[in-house]
Design a protein around this nucleic acid. Sequence first.
DNA 1: GCCAACGTTGGC
DNA 2: GCCAACGTTGGC
Length: 155
Amino acid sequence: MKYWLFKSEPDDFSIDDLAASDKQTTFWFGIRNYQARNFIRDELQPDDLILFYHSSCAVPAVVGTAIVVSEAQTDNTAFDPQSPYFDAKSDPSKPRWLGVDIQFQRKFATPVTLRFIKQDEQLQRMYLVQKGNRLSIQPVTEDEWQRILTLGGAQ
DNA sequence: GCCAACGTTGGC
DNA sequence: GCCAACGTTGGC
């Protein structure tokens, strides 16, 4: 089992939106970066755990956790010309983009802010705070997972 | 709105 | 295969 961090813009889809989804589950679509796609295709497994991160907002922070509940599946928004995630070069017989179903686990009592992560000794090496990193799906170590959950008031 | 740091595209 | 131009991400 592995740990991950998923970024989402809360104006688009927040942890509350996930919690309010049918069965508290949603298909994670719109990943259009090859490195992130490769994580989905090659490494993400059911039962993997996710730090849910709010980006591009007033207070960027890890706001809760979720769990992977499906294998990788075709992201059909790539074939929809109406979708902002449309990709004319993705061939339906050979889908280029994938997603997984994720299910809400918990919302933190205390969001763990980017600002805090940057100055926390135990979290210095998180992918999130490495220079220039913009990946929307990132690996997280078990130690980082434990530390974030403690800080979030989940343990 | 700015801009650093990437990733992608396409001409050569 | 190189690399300049362009587009995107995302914190501030």
